[in-house]
Write a protein that binds this DNA or RNA. Sequence first.
DNA 1: CTATTGCAGATAAAAAATATCCACGATAAA
DNA 2: TTTATCGTGGATATTTTTTATCTGCAATAG
Lengths: 172, 172
Amino acid sequence: MKLGEGVEAAIHCVATLSSVEGNSTMPGAALAESFGLSPSYLLKHLNMLSASGILESVPGPSGGYRLAKAADSITLLDVVLAIEGRQPAFRCGEIRRNGPVKLDGSAYIKPCGINAAMLKAERAYRAALAETKLSDIVATFNREGDPRSLSASCAFVERHQRPQKPGSTKQI
Amino acid sequence: MKLGEGVEAAIHCVATLSSVEGNSTMPGAALAESFGLSPSYLLKHLNMLSASGILESVPGPSGGYRLAKAADSITLLDVVLAIEGRQPAFRCGEIRRNGPVKLDGSAYIKPCGINAAMLKAERAYRAALAETKLSDIVATFNREGDPRSLSASCAFVERHQRPQKPGSTKQI
DNA sequence: CTATTGCAGATAAAAAATATCCACGATAAA
DNA sequence: TTTATCGTGGATATTTTTTATCTGCAATAG
């Protein structure tokens, strides 16, 4: 069981974006630089976050990304599913059917008990992820983070965020 | 997030082995045939199950595998960890340190809040897996499984299980 | 018009999962 | 004692997934 590295990157990105002001945006290149990530690859992940309705993107100069929703209505589950996909970790391959004895399909109408147990665990996992909101992450960071780290990331946002024209679809 | 196919195979194998009688064993080749799996590869997984103390192996003719513990003291978590490894799915790469601004290590003594939240979810996942015992899986199968499937797998075990000499370290 | 940015697709490189094979030691049975 | 069966470990190949890069295109602020 493994989560791709993109998940960590995505969470850090949305956390950073949660502190850009108003409808301002931050370019993907800045986010990549902020975490020492490959810009080209990070864009893929930012894209998935946009496709999932977590981020909004603005093209053109002074464009970039911003949150599409308030930070307290984005959960870790949202981000993880956006990056890793919505499929469950355990996929029942119904290997019980692949043995030498061939029974007809009607023998397998009942769902596999193993699958049920694995999915139950995954529901618990997702429920726990859904409990943590982006705003919680940010609040913890602001409360317990080291002051130097805090002011450094604050300065970084200040330096790279770009204000948008008032017309830009703004919500939150 | 993805679980390897080996997990499904491993669970089915231990479930099958839980119905061999006494200290009898079943060869890995039979287990592979039973689920239409590659024998050579399945052996790797069976090996990990042995290394984790879930299975016992007996070499020589009429050798094979059997459970090393009672079916009610083996959980799905045991099997999943044996196959997938004990590392958590989310590994904090501390990418917050990789930005252009270099702070010294003392700024990062506090554990990363993101990591904490992800690990909390994983604890929930593992706790749910630990709640399901192998004996539960088997009981559900015996209670709700299709009679044809039930008797087929019963016959399969009967045909392939091999009794051992009384000296063979037997427990349960 | 121009420079900057996101987007989509092709592609490549690296890593991991899956699968096979062989030489070896153990051992039950003939 | 011999032989055939089995698990073990290592080496290796194959396939799939992940990670990474590049290019051309559309949008748009200045």
